[in-house]
Design a protein around this nucleic acid. Structure first.
Lengths: 208, 208
DNA sequence: AAAATATCTTGACAGCGATAAGATTGATTC
DNA sequence: GAATCAATCTTATCGCTGTCAAGATATTTT
């Protein structure tokens, strides 16, 4: 006898549940925020029981790990610049802009990607790989710009610096530490801040 | 018997509980991480019931709000450079280093200060004030360095850029996106990354 | 068709934030 | 000094969460 509790599905077995859970989680992520995303709510959204997810993901950390990995893959895609006309410097600026826009378009996902959940270093290999993929894209752009090989320490250092800067800007804006001025475009904001940096650096090199 | 854990306290009325809760929370913060800090555990640590805190703080957000505010005040203190000998550029470097060291010494607190809990913009006024205090300290340093008044848009832009960069670096290291090399000092790491930035900027200005 | 395996459900436990109502304290007032 | 009052703390409870255990159902294999 099929005991129907509240609303048991006709099709008890759904099928490929793993990607459905991931999609549902991705949808809900931006609605409820990175911290309040619960497995139970995701499961309910898909239409399965509260614990169905545990046959596809070991725990919550693994699910959001896949979600974060997905985010890094999308970020890597956004960073590759198709524009073959512009020079290296322009490409870096465009990449920085694309990075910033991605973060602002997916704030909860971005917070998840760089959130405290993976701060201990324990994470799914897929996430680590996706992160390296994104970072590699940035290194490639900078290597082209500097006219150096990708695997040089100079390129690595420069990429690290560039990443820090853009991530910091995006992070501060997303967490509403800096308020993004209304009526401003991402482009203008990024350029304006970069201008501030030039100002800073001119003073430094002038005195040195 | 000064303190009984499981049994009910002899002195049912504790006294000034608010600061005790804050101190206990601060202690536990670095142990359990910014997300897993619970009111119940903090209350138990102090030795009061699970819900005693609600007579001093409206909810969890308010407690950690005060915790974050405390963090920003400490950060502001760290940023003021006492060295009167060095020039402006040196002071900025020292401030950046102090900022980075503060973040690395209090990773959970730092994560809390810039975490998703206040991303919506809703926060205690005290937190907002403390944040402005810290940012003001940075602006003061940069204003001195650039030889401009504190309230000029140039200074604000430059401070915003500098903050973004240092915050980004600290954030990436703390969240173990960048692995801080073992055997390296904060000083060397900050300088190395800053060097990468110079490299980046030289290429940019050279092509422009 | 029967057996084995993968998948999903129900049930339960502990921990969490939060509210409501009662108990106890120190302070105020007569 | 005794009664009253407001602040403070406790107990009880609710709904939500992650997670495990055991049973039910579907799919695959033999």
């Amino acid at each position: 006898m099929t005991k129907t509790s509240v609303r048991s599905r006709d099709t008890y077995h759904v099928g490929n549940l793993a990607p459905q859970l991931l999609d549902a989680a991705r949808e809900m992520l931006e609605e409820v925020g990175p911290t309040k995303l619960s497995l139970r709510a995701v499961s309910e959204r898909v239409g399965v029981s509260s614990t169905a997810a545990y046959h596809h993901y070991a725990n919550r950390a693994e699910l959001i790990g896949h979600l974060a990995a997905q985010g890094f893959r999308e970020l890597a895609k956004v960073l590759v610049i198709r524009d073959t006309n512009s020079d290296g410097v322009q490409k870096l600026r465009n990449a920085s802009l694309a990075y910033f826009s991605f973060a602002r378009s997916n704030p909860a996902l971005y917070q998840l990607m760089f959130g405290p959940e993976f701060a201990n270093g324990e994470m799914i290999p897929e996430l680590l790989a996706a992160r390296e993929e994104a970072f590699g894209e940035l290194k490639r752009i900078i290597a082209e710009m500097l006219g150096l090989d990708v695997e040089t320490p100079e390129v690595r250092r420069a990429a690290l610096a560039g990443w820090s800067y853009t991530h910091g800007l995006a992070s501060l804006v997303i967490h509403s530490v800096l308020h993004f001025p209304v009526g401003t475009t991402d482009e203008r904001f990024v350029d304006s801040t970069l201008q501030g940096f030039e100002h800073l650096f001119r003073a430094q090199t002038a005195s040195a």
